[in-house]
């Protein structure tokens, strides 16, 4: 049986919001150490990898491994009913044919409950090796989102090139071209948190990526910062780390090439 309680239902809401345009259904694999989801888009170009650690839950117990096959349209409907500061308790028995959601207001004066039918999903899983990428860029997620939004109007392919001093995001369209260059810096945002751009380069890198997917993966609500891992001719990794050791949401995107 699985039982997990998140202090904020909004955590799961944001995750589902961020991936629902890429995947329509996926298996949540639950075990003692947490919940994992791996799923590709229908074109097998992009992959979503979600890892939620049991330690990041307020309460968590899973005494037997269970796979929960979830339809994201149904899940979105359920999560829409949660207020942002509600807590969320997830429950499933060992049969794995239903998932139960309980949202509870902070004051405990409102409790809502939803039951969702699960499905059997035959998914192809990929082995993703740990890679030491040539380029690691850490930046504000709002900045990354702004760059993708701005440049998406100019063309379908984003070229990202990085050297030791800077990273350049560029697009060449039919009638116009656009680029944004970022250099390492440190600024203070409105919450007085330090937002820095750091660029670590072992080897100069130049990759071409689908603008449509990048725009979807650029998401400022998931975490304050985002990490981009790049290397010539291999899929790029876009990573969001959740606070309080809850886990990570990774997007892998295959490059464009000749």
């Amino acid at each position: 049986m699985l039982e997990g309680r998140l202090t904020h239902a909004s955590t799961l809401k944001k995750i589902v919001e961020a991936v629902k345009d890429v995947i329509s259904e996926a298996n949540f694999d639950c075990n003692d150490s947490g919940i994992t989801l791996q799923c590709m888009d229908s074109g097998h170009v992009a992959l979503v990898l979600l890892q939620l650690n049991s330690d990041g839950f307020e309460d968590y117990r899973c005494d037997r491994n269970i796979t929960l096959g979830i339809n994201f349209a149904a899940l979105t409907k359920v999560l829409k009913c949660a207020a942002n500061d509600d807590s969320l308790t997830l429950k499933a028995d060992d049969s794995g044919d239903r998932l139960n959601f309980v949202f509870e207001s902070q004051k405990g004066d409102r409790v809502s409950e939803f039951d969702m039918k699960l499905m059997t999903i035959d998914a192809e899983l990929l082995s993703i090796p740990d890679n030491d990428y040539d380029v690691t860029i850490k930046m504000s997620s709002a900045e990354f989102s702004r760059i993708c939004k701005d440049l998406a109007n100019f063309g379908e392919t984003m070229n990202i090139s990085a050297d030791k001093e800077s990273v350049r995001f560029g697009v060449e369209g039919d009638v116009s071209a656009a680029s944004v260059v970022l250099r390492p810096n440190e600024t203070i945002d409105e919450d007085e948190k330090i937002v820095s751009t750091s660029i670590m380069v072992k080897k100069e890198t130049n990759v071409n990526l689908s603008m449509k997917f990048l725009k979807t993966f650029a998401n400022s609500s998931l975490a304050g910062s985002v990490t981009l891992e790049l290397q010539d001719d291999i899929p790029c990794l876009i990573k969001y780390v959740f606070p309080n050791d809850l886990g990570v949401l990774c997007f892998y995107l295959a490059p464009k090439g000749d």
């Binding site: 993703i128 090796p129 892998y252 295959a254 090439g257």
Partner: peptide
């Protein structure tokens, strides 16, 4: 334009 590759060209199927 450039051709889009697929992830299976880079990662093995489990």
């Amino acid at each position: 334009g450039l051709a889009q590759t697929q992830l299976v060209n880079f990662f093995k199927i489990q």
